[in-house]
Design a protein around this nucleic acid. Structure first.
Lengths: 192, 192
DNA sequence: TAGTTTACATACAATCTGTATGTTTTCTCT
DNA sequence: AGAGAAAACATACAGATTGTATGTAAACTA
């Protein structure tokens, strides 16, 4: 049973990320101890601190993984529509679907801003899920001008809050409707 | 120099809350150690654990304090307007003013959801700043119906994100404009 | 195949949290 | 006013956690 160094690294890193993800979701970052993580991953703390600078670096790796997965899910579903409005609505639906994966709202929207700081967290979002929204808004609201950035940011926040509310038991239909109304109102209003 | 028990309790609690607030803002909840807090407050850990169940309870006290202060600032400024739209715009401006107090965005919007959980944090918000928004929206959009709650929640999230963005150096004017556009679009669209 | 580097494992020092216990100040009741 | 009770602290301790330092085995390189 000999593995190349690349294989060993790859497998150990992935085991740590998987175990970390599960425990961070279950108990939160602060309440999850590194001995618990490495036990779940089947390695020792030595391996953890060999592959990651510290506990936070492991968390960051988990977050980047999740953010990419969400962005990919959105891209896959919203890219096929032609009209901007339909694309945005489809993107919204895809976002909610993606965020229903166990614990994603907690990881991406609650823990990450506190653990990594709002700037780092926002940067990760902006490169991933938020990028689709910006593109959609730019297509739907060519007259937005300097307000495109702020609007993207505010609507992205609305999406995030909706995902949290849905996870907490809110009616998804209501939130999708509310989002649609915000989009349509925006289009109506800026069109003059 | 003899103080009544009520005075002692009041002063010690306040000293702990003040010191905690300063350090939580400066370094975040997780990085702030209780020995540091009590040193800054001029008491010992014994006093801290006498007045608060644990470190988190002190943090909760800090947060409730801040949330009340924000709600009071909004009430004071938005109550005097008659027309719903003007009231909402004034409330938005008051909210941004209130959130400019050193560290409030970090405390209320970043740390609190992670430390107290999103539910507890949302409950504190809903009882305070969010209540004004709900009232304003209900007045401005009588036709909102079942969407009032979702819309309140989503717009509240937009406010929060705007406050964070402004603190991070974003142009306040742009965000106030974007908020106004969201309100107006909503009014336009639901009016048919 | 010998030496070096990488990938881990173990041991350790410093800290932190919550609790248990001890002491001093205020309160209450007669 | 004085004694017992209760509140408000202060100190000491046990358990756990983090990051580092050091040691070992496996893989790579020449």
């Amino acid at each position: 049973m000999s593995r190349s160094n690349r294989e060993r690294t790859e497998q150990t890193r992935q085991a740590l990320i998987d175990a970390g993800r599960r425990l961070f979701v279950e108990k939160g970052y602060a309440e999850t101890a590194t001995p618990e993580i490495v036990a779940a991953a089947g390695v020792t703390r030595g391996a953890l601190y060999h592959h990651f600078e510290d506990k936070r670096a492991l968390f960051r790796a988990v977050i980047e993984c999740e953010a990419k997965a969400v962005a990919a899910a959105i891209e896959a579903r919203s890219a096929s529509y032609g009209a901007p409005r339909a694309m945005l609505i489809a993107g919204a639906s895809a976002y909610f679907d993606a965020m229903m994966a166990q614990g994603r709202t907690r990881l991406l929207l609650i823990e990450a801003p506190a653990v990594l700081g709002p700037l780092a967290s926002a940067a990760i979002d902006a490169e991933n899920a938020e990028a689709s929204l910006r593109a959609g808004l730019a297509a739907m609201l060519p007259e937005a001008g300097a307000m495109l950035e702020p609007l993207t940011s505010l609507l992205s926040a609305a999406f995030d809050r909706a995902a949290i509310a849905i996870e907490a038991g809110g009616e998804r239909r209501h939130y999708e409707q509310a989002i649609a109304v915000l989009f349509d109102g925006l289009a109506d209003h800026l069109r003059r």
